[in-house]
């Protein structure tokens, strides 16, 4: 689980794109600025449809970008900044929904599905390995040999 969380964290900031940040917003300290960018990318622009405040030209997005930077300069941690915004706008503002009972299905569903699928696949593969008594009863040994030969031939050709 811990490894998963680390992986999720590593991958969470993969989409690193930029857009609407105006020159006058940029912080002098590059480390703070890059944290601000990272936070902005995870916050949804509420008046837009599906954009982060980092990408949006909307006024509210700009206000929130400035707010994020102000709080960072004021010494907040990333989590504290996010918390500050969530208190005002709710979890809806987070592009990555928090893990809690109502989002367990979302966060663990994919891995649950993979597991279930893997179990089903294992059963299928085991069944496929041994000929069941009923499988292809209509084939005589001669036919089977012919098919195998043809298949082997096809294997070589394709």
């Amino acid at each position: 689980m811990r490894a998963l969380a680390v992986l999720a964290f590593l991958l969470a900031f993969l989409p690193g794109l930029a857009g609407a940040v105006q020159p006058d917003e940029v912080l002098a300290d590059p480390a703070l600025e890059s944290r601000a960018r990272e936070i902005s990318k995870g916050l949804r622009c509420l008046v837009c449809q599906n954009e982060s405040i980092d990408e949006s030209n909307a006024t509210l997005a700009r206000d929130l970008r400035l707010l994020v930077r102000e709080r960072l300069v004021g010494g907040d941690s990333n989590a504290e900044v996010l918390d500050f915004v969530v208190q005002r706008y709710g979890d809806f503002v987070l592009l990555s929904p928090p893990v809690r009972p109502s989002t367990w299905l979302l966060w663990y569903g994919p891995f649950g599905l993979l597991l279930a699928g893997a179990i089903a696949a294992v059963f299928y593969l085991r069944a496929q390995r041994r000929p069941a008594a009923v499988a292809e009863p209509e084939l005589t040994g001669e036919e089977r040999r012919r098919i195998e030969a043809l298949l082997a031939d096809e294997d070589r050709n394709s």
Binding site: L7, L14, P15, K41, D91, L95, S96, S102, L106, W107
Partner: peptide, 13 residues
């Protein structure tokens, strides 16, 4: 309940 599912989720999964 209203949540957003954005790029961070998709990239992480």
């Amino acid at each position: 309940e209203r949540v957003s599912v954005g790029p961070p989720f998709f990239n992480a999964t």
